[in-house]
Amino acid sequence: MSSVTETPGTGLPMSRINPKAIVRWTILFIGGVLMVTPLLYMFSTSLKTPGQIYDLRLIPSAPTLANYMEVLREGDFMRWFINSSIVAVVVTASNLFFDSLVGYTLAKFKFRGRRFVFIAILSTLMIPTEMLVIPWYLMSAQFGWLDTYWGIMFPGMTTAFGTFLMKQFFETVPDDFLEAARIDGMNEFTIWWKIAMPLVTPALSALAIFTFLGNWTAFFWPLIVTTSKELYTLPIGLTSFAVEQAIRWEMIMTGAALATIPTLVIFLVLQRFIVRGVMLAGLKG
């Protein structure tokens, strides 16, 4: 016998249900469904045989992992996966380092021309990628960077957006921290690396997520700069399922499903660092 007494009518009384909450939850539910459906269809399609892909049931009648086996056995897929990983990781690391170094300098040092430099950096945000691709291409051709990793990566190694984001965050770091470190004997680089950087981890996490996702899914520039199949990144490689072997949706969806995994991992790992107010703990209570 359970010692818990069940009282009848413990459900929520009608008067307590807030009509505003119903509207709010309904809107959130619809939004959630809209977001999740394409993902679910991607996974669903990846588990279907070619004959089943136009059967729109979400749960396949005879789910199979054959597509995954085929994609992974297909020699180039792992190559593309590795290529995408190299590009995304290197570019993300580069942005975290250089954007925050420049952002810190612009936020915390007073020097002649500081405003000008900042505005010049910001103004590049207004130039669309499409306009930059031709100069990038010409530059790559002249330097012999076409069809190389460096050719894929160099335009994104630092970004105006990242610099702007980091500058704004570094401005919120109180000068007292830096002055205390100066008195404690650290040099300026160490102060940036050991004191200022840990104080802006939320911004670094956000920048890492943006940069990684942006480069993981980048299509336009890698398509232009690469010609050999061994250098394709995942998005370019996936399109080859459509071109060479007619449109094999189940293969594209399988490749896409596999490609989603690292982005989910990155997001889940980094999101816990995006906690506001970490920095305030060292200041007045």
Binding site: D176, E179, A180, I195, L199, T201, V278, G282, K284
Partner: peptide, 11 residues
């Protein structure tokens, strides 16, 4: 030096 708002490192 000891600062008004302590400036001890939160991390």
């Amino acid at each position: 030096m000891v600062f008004q708002n302590y400036a001890i490192y939160p991390h």
